[in-house]
Amino acid sequence: MKYTEEHEWLRADGDVYVVGITEHATTQLGDLVFVELPEVGATVSKDDEIVVIESVKAASDIMAPVDGAITEVNTALADDPSLANSDPLGEGWFFKIKPSDPSQFDGLMDEAAYNALIG
């Protein structure tokens, strides 16, 4: 598992990565009520704002963690955004991305580094 400073997690699944947000992030955001996911097939660049999420409190963006193509999105999450709160590392995943530049993974954190970041 890899992590970004934006509180996303990435888990390898064959040649794609599953991406979601961490439990720390969902706790900070509060109950999610709206998720707008990217188009399947879209080509995205690192730091593009590709997901809009809204909690009971406010709207925020989720950025592409690496360059790549979106291969799948979690439509169940769009129908029931609370999945991100109840199961952030499982059923609450956001999208799958096929990276185009594997070297970008060197810039991501491992679990120990992420845990140090959130203290």
Binding site: G30, D31, V33, V56, K57, S82, N85
Partner: peptide, 10 residues
């Protein structure tokens, strides 16, 4: 307090 452990929705 803006919320407690239950969260706004609950």
């Amino acid at each position: 307090p803006v919320q407690y452990s239950l969260g706004v929705m609950k």
